[in-house]
Amino acid sequence: METRLITATPEGIAEAAAILRAGGLVAMPTETVYGLAGDARDGRSVARIYAAKNRPSFNPLIVHLPDVESVSRYAHLTPEAERLAAAFWPGPLTMVLPLRDGAGLSPLVTAGLTTVAIRVPAHPVARALLRAADLPLAAPSANPSGRVSPTRAAHVMAGLSGRIEAVLDGGACAVGVESTILALDGPAALLRPGGVSVEEIEAVLGHSLLMPGDPTTPKAPGQLASHYAPEARVRLNATAAAPGEVLVGFGAVRGQISLSDQGDLIEAAANLFHILREADSLAGPLGAIAFAPVPESGLGRAINDRLRRAAAPRP
């Protein structure tokens, strides 16, 4: 596809918002780095973010919102989170919070977890786009996975041109490093250092943060080999179900349920966490799930990464 470079005028912001509402992807400036934005409620849009970045695993994505008031639609603000929000939002701080029931976010955004990472960006163009689109926007850094994060529109065009609909040019990013990420679904813990310093955060909280490596610190999402495992046992690369198994199909391999009858990797990615839960329910605690082979290319690498974690031996 042709990637449009859109100037951040009121007309340009309205055009970018229309693209997002139609399920497209737009790279937007924030004060940290440019983010690759898509509708956080739309599984296909979120799957396209992973495809555009060639991201090899489904880790949780940060949901960007226009103001603190909108956060309660998607997450529970703990008392500590409220204090930090008052001090640092809008700004380069991301908080991992308990997910609200019925939030309506794609499971790909949360990677199937019961928490959601949320940020209220300070960049005026990002905030204007969030208001114009009236959507929660999932927006990891707008660069191919493993490459240097982009701080200018030209950086995004160099890496993602032809993979996304548009880049909204808001000039250079002021901070230039990613947001600080805190886990606040338990004791406050640092998951990633970034644009707000640990010292500033601890001054607001009045106590020290748990640090990576501390045995009481929660592990960052996705690190455990058996993370996101269903109750039922999981077998991979199956072409038929063994007795007692629920077969999850893909493409030509037909099952009781399917990641994608058409063999569409974007559809399969969008369905993955929902299908894992549905298969687990069908199998029951004593049953098993067999997954049809998924190609180890493009989004298939990320799908297989999650399936291997689901099938890993349990502690």
Rank of each mutant, 00 (worst) to 15 (best):
P66S: 01
P107I: 07
H227Q: 14
P215T: 12
P187E: 11
D305K: 12
P121G: 10
R309Q: 15
P221T: 03
A103E: 03
R309V: 08
D280Y: 06
L65C: 01
F58P: 11
A174C: 02
E2N: 03
P124W: 07
L61P: 05
L307T: 07
V248E: 02
K219N: 08
F88Y: 13
L224I: 08
P124K: 01
R48L: 04
P29R: 10
A183V: 04
L61D: 15
V120C: 14
A290H: 06
R41D: 14
G300W: 05
S161A: 07
A87F: 12
M28L: 15
A269I: 05
H76I: 09
P107N: 09
L77C: 12
T114M: 07
L99H: 11
E82W: 11
L129W: 02
Y228F: 15
A174D: 10
V148P: 10
A225C: 10
A103R: 05
A241Y: 14
V177I: 13
S145Y: 05
F250T: 07
G162I: 04
P56C: 08
A270Q: 14
A283E: 14
I118F: 03
P136Y: 01
S57K: 15
A312K: 15
N304A: 04
V68G: 05
T9I: 01
A133Y: 02
L190D: 11
I19Y: 05
G43P: 14
P187N: 06
I62M: 01
P243E: 13
R306P: 04
D185A: 15
G162M: 03
L182V: 08
P212L: 03
L135Q: 03
R163G: 03
R127E: 03
A16G: 13
A283W: 00
L137R: 02
R233I: 00
D280P: 01
M1F: 05
E199S: 02
L210N: 09
P313L: 15
I13H: 01
A18T: 04
G194T: 11
I201Q: 12
S72L: 00
L130F: 05
I289Q: 11
P90D: 00
T180H: 06
P243F: 14
A126P: 05
P230I: 02
G176N: 13
F58L: 10
A86L: 12
G194H: 13
A158Q: 15
E69T: 13
G249V: 06
E278W: 05
Q262D: 07
P187Y: 09
N271W: 08
I181K: 05
V46N: 09
N54G: 15
I275Y: 10
L25I: 06
A133S: 08
A238K: 10
R309N: 08
I266T: 13
G206H: 05
L5K: 08
G171A: 01
E165L: 00
R254S: 07
P66A: 01
R306G: 11
